[in-house]
Design a protein around this nucleic acid. Sequence first.
RNA 1: GUCCCCAUCGUCUAGUGGUCAGGACACCAGCCUUUCAAGCUGGAAACGCGGGUUCGAUUCCCGCUGGGGACGCCA
Length: 475
Amino acid sequence: MSVVVRFAPSPTGFLHLGGARTALFNWLYARHCGGRYLLRIEDTDRLRSTPEAIAAILEGLRWLGLEGDEPPVFQSERFPRHLEVAARLLAEGRAYRCWCTPEELEEMRARARAEGRPVRYDRRCRARPPDYVRPGVRPVIRLAVPTEGETVIEDLVQGTVRIANAQLDDMVLVRGDGTPTYMLSVVVDDHDMGITHVIRGDDHLTNAFRQLQLYRAMGVEPPAFAHIPLIHGPDGAKLSKRHGAVSVLEYREMGFLPEAMRNYLVRLGWSLGDREILTTEEMIAHFDIRDVGRSPARFDMDRLLHVNAHWLRQKPAEELVRLVEPFLARLGLVLDETGRRRLLDGMAELVVRARTLVELARGARVYVAPRPLAVDPRAAKFLDGANRGRLARLRAVLAEVDAWEPARLEEVCRAFAAREGLAFAKVAQPLRAALTGTTVSPPIFEVMRVLGREEVLARLDDAAAGRNPALQHAP
RNA sequence: GUCCCCAUCGUCUAGUGGUCAGGACACCAGCCUUUCAAGCUGGAAACGCGGGUUCGAUUCCCGCUGGGGACGCCA
């Protein structure tokens, strides 16, 4: 049997990390099995579904490389089919009209809760004759589920889970306004789309029992279920907005790489021995939904940063330049030919100091920012009167250096420090401040190499003359 | 309240009826060093508790505790 899976987000918000991981697991399972991975937009709640959310979700999936193998199915376009199934169930006596008002249901629930009974619909309308009518009320259609016995699910992740049918509700299939509910739509669509494996968050586990009853009522074979644990925040509660960024697109803005996101996400609940770093090919080769653990994982930003730093370093310099350009633009920096050349040349020493593209852009200003360089407060302290004079003397020496390469430059600078009666560090830090505008940078002779003699001399002139403005915004 | 799920270092996890319980992130120390990183070396750090079963339980069973999830004419 060929595997068909789907990712089915409801477009009431953005694609969050949990959804992204669910999509990833579906995608990996399909790729591993040589099956198909489909997308379905669950927009049955017309009031809360928005085009913006649909666009954001698809964009998030595109960024992560988890687009569907076929164009997405929009659930709302399949209403007629859903209603047709409901009508059939009604005709067959497997479903019935319920004339209870929301107020009555609320009262029912309140009383059940107060008395410590399960909070369920009491099925009072189930026994009414088919021609019963209650004036002024638009009935809903409910599924008549067994009240005795138990329902068992052989979940690929959760194992055998059983629940007493008394715990089940006669769920609403069609609302009073005649529109189908999620419960009905999901089952009909999964069946019609030929879904063989439903892989989703374990917040849906209890729904699965109800849905199983619907499959039976429809007389069709249910898919296999795999309910994966949710991602929790650092405090252990279900990941939500109060934990900070949850939309995957925010992670793109923070300078994370899609391959790093996939690598981080897949290791939450799934592992391959001791392996922490995995290529997408390796994931596909080894992933099995059956190996996913049952305990929920907490989101850990430090770990994500570490994984991202790793994948950043795998990239060739050319690609990093391309990737960092938009982040430079945000800092108000435009890449001209000189900046591009320097960035490419100095990238190796920049990337080991960055965990994200945002940090990379920050480090890149040394090669990209125009003269006279803005200087941050800490660097400014190194550019006092005494040091300016010293930098002017050093400038004269550097102007005459025979070979402009790091080892030679270091020799010359060390000799200069000795002549000034100073430890080398006392010369290096002011030099760094003048050349980079900061106190943190790649090795100073590397910076000089990349910048070239002319630019170095010009920056020293700026510093000696006190031309550098203060950096306006903290880098 | 009812039902369901979970439980190995702070975090992500590996693992076994007998292991020095392994790795990674984070943390600490040292080396390197012109700053910051990276890198290297070392360190601290876990089987929630109580009962069983067993020659022997982190591992199997039960209970407890703790955590999470679901209980909508939301999805």
